[in-house]
Design a protein around this nucleic acid. Structure first.
Length: 606
DNA sequence: ATGGGCCGCCC
DNA sequence: GTACGGGCGGCCCATC
């Protein structure tokens, strides 16, 4: 039965007083942007649905209900939770049918709309939702039809949840308690609030500082384009790419008639000079640094990338109400990692000089600091823990540098010499080869790829890998076992206690390319996904700890968490934060210690 | 307009 | 002939 509530909400509170679980949804007057509001708020169970007209009713009275230990079922809760916060309401004990469905389908290719509520309603509850009504809902248009639609939206959530949990329990991703953070389901439901908080809080971008970096990029870009023009117009070999350009005010001048953003045109120019150049990628160009034009093109590529991907367009993401940048998180990728977009705050430059300058433009408010923590060598520690290789385990236990230790063994050299150049490639140091190897093996890197990456012969690469695995046989066996498991069982899990599953299609019927990909993803998933589990648990610990404190969660990048905190408590918080992150790590790493690098800064540092 | 391919930024 | 895991996104260019 549907109840339309447009006066007061005691009826709702009374109804749910002795219920353990309720389903919630909201209809808003648009996407979340700090100006929009909730129009209708629906609460219900299988028998009764209450549709509250938020234009007329003060929903603050629902505070105790939302903070009670009753389970609140949502579909895509992050969306509604942010709106509730905007209306001054907090919430906990949420079950999210979208997150649950993602857990049940990680790794599977699914058609568009697969995770939509109407699909779930049909699949799990044989219910029908008429989504065409949604577009007609607005502040001035609440009628019988929209109320019916709004009520329907919550009607099936209970059945969906019941059946999802059955499946998740069978797969070991839940024990039936959807809030238990020792299970994947609980991990996701709980950390959802942290992701909602990071979206809600956003990060401040210092516009003036950022503009200065863009100006610097522009200067470099102008210079390098001038140089490219000079080369094209003065070297006879490029004559055909040169044209005269004349405007009304200046005399004719020779310029390059090439769009340097076009890989096809770029390659054409380069091959005209040297037909052995295969592509315009940075890796390929590195081999042809003897040509001036190649050096200039590499510079051009670098600056135009920064300009096009991270230039003025970033300003469009500054919200006019909060004056901050609010990214959107997608909480469950195939491995359990998180992505974000609009903008993608996980790909803000950090590595190069100018990249570092761009990242430093993300700053705290006046009187605040940014306190960030990251898990040092997280994936390598996970490999150590679960391979139980003594070299790896002891390196971390003794606080030694794993790359150097392994390097000495792989190349039979003294540990003092790991930073000397290799004989087979003088511009690369031993330790750098080892680093490529250590990270690459977690991805199932082949000797061919290693050979290409550091530009050595395939035979040399093969023998390096062989010697490496001879030194650490348990790591080799560990990775092999993971690869085989994915192939044989069609699923692979992250380490205990989580066991987050990634599903694969049938190995036998895959083509060779796909077979290789399944094997490599099987090796990688427990490592990458284990890292993701750990970071999500840390987010939960932090979210719970900072509740009622003036500390804000603002960002996360896989093995890194950023917070914004008043000056006076920054140092103290940094200590506590690394303690919380270590606590989370200790739930997964039982034998290998974790190191959390925590820093207090006036900007987002890396 | 749309989508695939290439390329490059992040961990 | 493919073979480095997980992403997002800008640009070019062919196609509709």
């Amino acid at each position: 039965m549907i109840h339309f509530i447009d006066t007061e909400i005691s009826k709702v509170l009374n109804y749910f007083a002795d219920k353990k679980i309720l389903m919630v949804d909201s209809e808003t007057d648009g996407a979340f942007d700090f100006n929009n509001k909730i129009i209708l708020l629906q609460l219900g169970d299988r028998e009764n649905q209450f549709v509250i007209d938020v234009r007329k009713v003060d929903i603050k009275g629902l505070r105790s209900l939302f903070l009670s230990d009753k389970i609140k079922i949502f579909h895509n809760a992050k969306f509604d939770v942010k709106f509730l916060w905007l209306h001054g309401l907090d919430i906990n004990n949420v079950y999210d049918t979208l997150l649950a469905e993602r857990l049940l389908n990680a790794g599977c290719e699914r058609p568009k709309g697969y995770y939509a509520l109407d699909r779930l309603a049909k699949y799990y509850a044989d219910g029908y939702l008429d989504k065409s009504v949604r577009v007609t809902i607005n502040r001035k248009n609440i009628n019988q039809k929209t109320i019916q639609y709004a009520a329907d939206d919550v009607k099936y959530l209970m059945d969906i949840r019941d059946k999802q949990i059955k499946r998740l329990v069978k797969l070991g991703m839940s024990n039936g308690d959807c809030q238990d953070i020792t299970t994947v389901l609980g991990l996701e439901n709980k950390s959802m609030l942290a992701f909602a908080a990071m979206e809600y809080n956003g990060i401040k971008l210092d516009k003036d500082k950022y503009q200065k970096v863009i100006d610097l990029i522009d200067e470099n870009l102008d210079k390098v384009m001038q140089d490219l023009d000079d080369i094209i117009c003065h070297e006879p070999v490029f004559e055909r790419y040169c044209v005269y350009y004349q405007d009304l005010f200046t005399s004719a001048k020779k310029v390059a008639n090439v769009n340097w953003n076009s890989p096809i045109q770029k390659l054409d120019v380069l091959q005209h000079m040297d037909s052995t150049i295969q592509s315009t990628s940075a890796a390929e160009l590195l081999n042809f640094k003897k040509y001036d034009i190649v050096n200039k093109l590499m510079e051009y590529n670098k600056y135009s990338k920064l300009k096009n991907s991270f230039g003025e367009n970033m300003f469009e993401f500054i919200n006019p109400v909060t004056n901050r940048v609010h990214t959107e998180f997608w909480q469950i990728l195939d491995t359990g990692r998180v992505s974000c977009k609009n903008p993608n705050m996980q790909q803000i430059p950090a590595r190069t000089d100018i990249g570092g300058m761009m990242r430093e433009c993300f700053v705290p408010e006046q009187g605040y600091k940014i306190v960030g923590g990251d898990y040092s060598g997280c994936e390598l520690r996970i490999i150590a823990e679960f391979s139980q290789d003594p070299v790896w385990v002891n390196a971390f236990k003794d606080g030694k540098d794993l790359h150097s230790e392994l390097c000495a063994m792989t190349f039979n050299i003294d540990i003092k010499d790991v930073k000397t150049p290799t004989p087979f490639k003088p511009d690369i140091k031993y330790r750098d080869v080892q680093k490529t190897l250590n990270f690459g093996l977690a991805y199932g890197m082949s000797h061919i790829k290693l050979a290409n990456t550091i530009d050595i012969s395939e035979d040399e690469a093969q023998s390096i890998i062989k010697k490496f695995f001879t030194a650490v046989p348990k790591v080799e066996r560990f990775l092999e076992a993971l690869g085989n498991r994915g192939k044989e069982r069609g699923i692979i899990k992250t380490p205990p206690p989580y066991g987050r599953i990634r599903f694969f299609e049938d190995y036998k019927h895959a083509d060779n390319k796909r077979k290789g990909a399944i094997e490599r993803a099987s090796k990688n998933h427990p490592i990458q996904g284990g890292n993701a589990d750990m970071t999500k648990l840390a987010l939960i610990y932090i979210y719970d700890y900072i509740k009622d404190k003036p500390i804000k969660l603002i960002h996360t990048v896989h093995d890194e968490i950023q917070t914004e905190v008043p000056d006076y408590m920054a140092d103290e918080w940094a200590v506590k934060m690394s303690e919380l992150m270590n606590q989370a790590a200790a739930q997964i790493l039982k034998n290998v210690p974790m190191v959390v690098d925590c820093a207090v800064n006036d900007y987002w540092s890396k």
